[in-house]
Amino acid sequence: MYYMDFLRVRRALRTYSIVLGCIVILIAITIPLSRVTTHGFTVGIGGDSSLGDARTGLALLHELGKDHSFPIDDFATAAIAFAILFATGLSTSLSRVNESALFAFVKPTSRERSTWVTFGIDAAAIFVAFLIAFVLSLVPFAEVGLLGRITFDSAVHLPATIAFGLGIGLMWYGMVQAATSTLTRGGAILGISWGVFATMRGLGSIPQGTIPDSFYWFIHAFNTINPLVYLQASFGDLHGHYGSLGVVWLVALAALAIATFRRSRMEV
């Protein structure tokens, strides 16, 4: 049922693009409106003359200095956040197909193969979602003439940043798939995963000794597979987190393997 997977991700990407596009359009409209309605004149952001006096109503521009630059990594990180959101949205794709199992499981393809094709199509869609967010994040900067301020010094880390971020997305995606691969209604599990991961990440900051040791270690053990913990790391400096990158992908692949195994044994 690869064609159905293709239709599904195409529909999801269309919705995602529309939502992001609306956000970008809103920002694009807000910037000139802010200039005009607040101050009644247009500021030449791109030039050197008025940067120090820029009063556009936008906090970003208020804080701009003459030498301020925007590392390309920051755009990738922002795009990754949206791609992770998109990934969680796809993470119940197997359970959705399960509603049509009597149709989908009687095709000349093994369940294992069809499951991995679903994963592959979803992973490709998640990457496309990242690219869409990445490109769209540049639009407001282009509008105010800040594209020239984007620096590529950190571009050497870009592949690792992307791999880490998308790995986090796939990790979350995989764990929800593993939990819902034999169900026909996976949406609730996805919703619960947000609550559980956010709560456990919060509990992870409780110092040792203030709660029972067993509970403390349980929280920390759980947080080794908590995407939100790694997401926080991905927003910071990636240096020193290459081990985490490996863990994230390992957990993602293990979760996908569990989902595949469970689905191959599923009875309808």
């Binding site: 049509s100 009597l102 149709f103 095709k107 000349p108 393809t109 193969r113």
Partner: peptide, 17 residues
Amino acid sequence: PKTFEYLAYVPETSALF
């Protein structure tokens, strides 16, 4: 899976998308 190259099934309840 190879069997389903020549076997077709119509279930009792609709299983379509």
